[in-house]
Design a protein around this nucleic acid. Sequence first.
DNA 1: AGTATTGCCCGCCACG
DNA 2: GGCGTGGCGGGCAATA
Length: 323
Amino acid sequence: MMTKLDSVQYNVVALVVPGSSLFETSIAAEVFGQPCPAPVAKSRWYRFRIATPLPGSVKLDLANLDVEHGLRLLHNAHTIVIPGWPSKAIVTLELARSLRNASKRGARMVSFCTGSFLLAEIGLLDGLTVTTHWGAIDRFRERFPSVQVDPNVLYVDNEQILTSAGSSTAIDLSLHIVSKDFGVHTANAIAREMVTAPHRHGGQAQFATSQPTLTDDPQGIGSIIDWMSSHINQDLPVHEIARQWHMSPRTFSRRFSAIVGEGPHQWLIRQRVKRAQELLEQGHTVEHAASLVGFKSAMAMRPHFKRITSTSANQYRRSFARP
DNA sequence: AGTATTGCCCGCCACG
DNA sequence: GGCGTGGCGGGCAATA
């Protein structure tokens, strides 16, 4: 089992074939190919490269790409990224074997969008719950009945195997991975660099048809969110917030969920945990961080922290605290 | 650790 | 009948 501490370097390899998605390949390059951000030791930061079965000029979906590396790169990759996979691409025995071997020795497998088809094809997803592009879900289910698909998430984290939904969710998943490896602070720095929202949450249903940005927010939920963010360290019962904005609790809840993708209380907890992560990175104690972000105690925060980050608060602090 | 209570949230339905 | 709203009740998780 590979852990943060014993890997000297995160070798990240994106695997492309003719027809692969240029956009998603670029996202991987953009996130994992970033220059090492200041607080991270250079030797620990990602080394990003692209591999393809037949090195040379590869005709991706939107443009040609010169790829100099072959499948050999997969041998010692720590993380393998599969950008959108063309439906008619043939999975050669050599490719399947390389990927299975990588997976067997513990390499992290990441798929964007239809990249999950490749992972499923070679049997790595059996028994797991994953996600994929919303438009390909029916096809996916039909072809891989032993794999559960969750259409309502941006990405699914199975520790060693991570899958994301439609194109732009590749960014969400990539940043999620950065935050697992180097902490949310670093992920946020990368997000700023890329000028994107550090973390979105919610089902892809809301992205499939219309994308609710804060500009189509007639009810002004956006300003309520701002207010909630700045009062996050206080006790904020949902019915009180509703009253303050002259709405019934029911209506407030409904409007909030429609825009944000989860209920107000759940959202608050998530924000608190996220903020606590940053405080822990700054070296605050778990108790102190918990109270600063509005939890009544560290005890109250622990289960939420564990559920949302899949690490304990103490563990997180040990891994990422900067003195 | 188990229990009691509170608060959230979602489905349902009635109202305008 | 369609649409947004608000109230109620149950299920359920969070908290004490």
